[in-house]
Design a binder for these strands. Sequence first.
DNA 1: ACCGGACATGAATACGTATGTAATACAATG
DNA 2: CATTGTATTACATACGTATTCATGTCCGGT
Lengths: 333, 333
Amino acid sequence: MVSTSRDVARLAGVSQPTVSRALRGDPKVTAETRERVAAAALALSYVPSQLGRSLSTQATRRVGIVADLSNPLYPLIVPPIHDALAARGYRMVLLAERDDDSSGYSPLLDRSVDGVLLTTTRQKSTLPFELHQRSIPMVMLNRIGGIVDTDSVVADNFDAGLVAVKMLIEAGHRDIGMLAGPTETSTSSDREAGVREALADADISLRQSNVVRGWFGHDSGDAGMRKLMSQEHPPRAVICVSDSVAIGALNAAHDLGLRVPQDVALVGIDNVPTASWSLCNLSTVSIPLPEMAKDAANLLVDRMTGKLPATPVHHVHPVRAVLRGTHTLSNDT
Amino acid sequence: MVSTSRDVARLAGVSQPTVSRALRGDPKVTAETRERVAAAALALSYVPSQLGRSLSTQATRRVGIVADLSNPLYPLIVPPIHDALAARGYRMVLLAERDDDSSGYSPLLDRSVDGVLLTTTRQKSTLPFELHQRSIPMVMLNRIGGIVDTDSVVADNFDAGLVAVKMLIEAGHRDIGMLAGPTETSTSSDREAGVREALADADISLRQSNVVRGWFGHDSGDAGMRKLMSQEHPPRAVICVSDSVAIGALNAAHDLGLRVPQDVALVGIDNVPTASWSLCNLSTVSIPLPEMAKDAANLLVDRMTGKLPATPVHHVHPVRAVLRGTHTLSNDT
DNA sequence: ACCGGACATGAATACGTATGTAATACAATG
DNA sequence: CATTGTATTACATACGTATTCATGTCCGGT
């Protein structure tokens, strides 16, 4: 039913190794032989087994991606990774985020991938250590964490916090609240640190009651906004840890009959496509995720092919303000 | 650096096959031996090579997913597939949609997956035939197409078209336009056929100028809506081939200063999460994509494990109207 | 005490490909 | 014509695991 290189060899009247060499374009094979082999392969619709090939070469040309499938940013990250890897001859194996039960990560450790791209590392994760122990190349994208120091590609999340605050202050806001994210991720805690520093620099105090902590998603923003706005003196401006949270907050505001930005201003971080919809028109801080994803994929391939120095490489991508309609009354920006 | 079953065998003082048996829980191994092997494996932090295992068993326990990464529905489909497969001991390999250059699909044909889940099949695609030729199990999800008859899981897209029209007619609309999708996909053409039949049944004519054809995405809805509305007598209601198109249209309407549904009504198809946002509040027809995805994944595993009859199985999932705020003035539904 | 059987383990081999080495054929050179 | 070198192909083997078969051991029954 399925044909092997041996079948092709028999049909072409050559040996199995010759088939291997001929199909891989080895110059040591006569053009005439190569043609005969190619014809036989075509006749049997032969496709080399990746399994046999991988076992023999000790390389799979496959990369594992650890991603949180429920993360709204994930559709932004995956396509660039896929394309960048494909362009360099690698394939992508997607793994869902799981708790730190290391047995769940066995697909990454059983030699079925040549390298790993981590997109949702928590600070306390042990996975990076296990990969390091087996000297499996890895790159951390977006978030960093774990014990070992490895290649990473992140945005300047601290600066993102600074920029978000600056946008609001320049629009005249001083009564500011925050829909914060989980402290166990570097993205969230770095952004929050930036926000707090910028507020402190401007002598603006951030009341504890004006900080609601949640996750990165839409629901979290919706619920957090309702909680913030139910206070006696709700803040007049809210910085959100992500665009998804901001858009959730935007919907909550709409439900509550609050006008944005007249009644309450909103600023997100990420600049996802949805933020640019005229229905949202969300002022935000751009995180260049597709570029970062591409960068990380190429970095990983470079690392796997030994094109990098032994010491880890760290790329920090710059962020920038995206001024739209939710942070200020004046449209003169 | 990396340890093999032979290394474990040497350390435990047994043979390599015994290691294989012991770690796989073969009852023919003494408890005492099993423990000695387990201890040795732990000491060497041994993880069995999936490569060697697959080559020996002639099974990878991996499934390939062919998906269009730019399709907005894709984030709805992938997580349920992943989880359903994981629950039955399979992993997921994601492949980007490519043109029908069959060489691009070699990852599906080179024995590196046990089965394939097709989510973006075009009518003319040759991939199903090639898979069939190699007797690689496959299931078509959402869309169907290709020459061969195989297992499939789809929604009742024709009925979705009927339901969408019925919603508008019951709200009193008779001046109806359509943002249609590509004719080369079964989802789009079935929905369109349903719409046309329902309109004909109600003696409503669909003017050619009131049909704008595009793709499934947001941009397509935005552009199509602008084109529709720029006519001298634009339709008072628009049926969109997908929610993404409808939401693009919604944004265009917002930009054009048109009120929805007072100036123009909109109905989508899919019921994506975004449609339920209060900013959108989109009336639509629910396509149970997550359930379909789970169904398809389980169907594929059943097929791979020989639990299905030889004849192809076809599942058609029902659709239902989701009445929200964009199809009618009255909120009494 | 001998034999048969149950059981645990080792030896051999298969899976499909790639590669290093040996062998063959042929051409060129003295 | 013999010899050396080169080009081409065949042979043997490695990769890591699972499985079939053969071997050996221990036990109980007669």
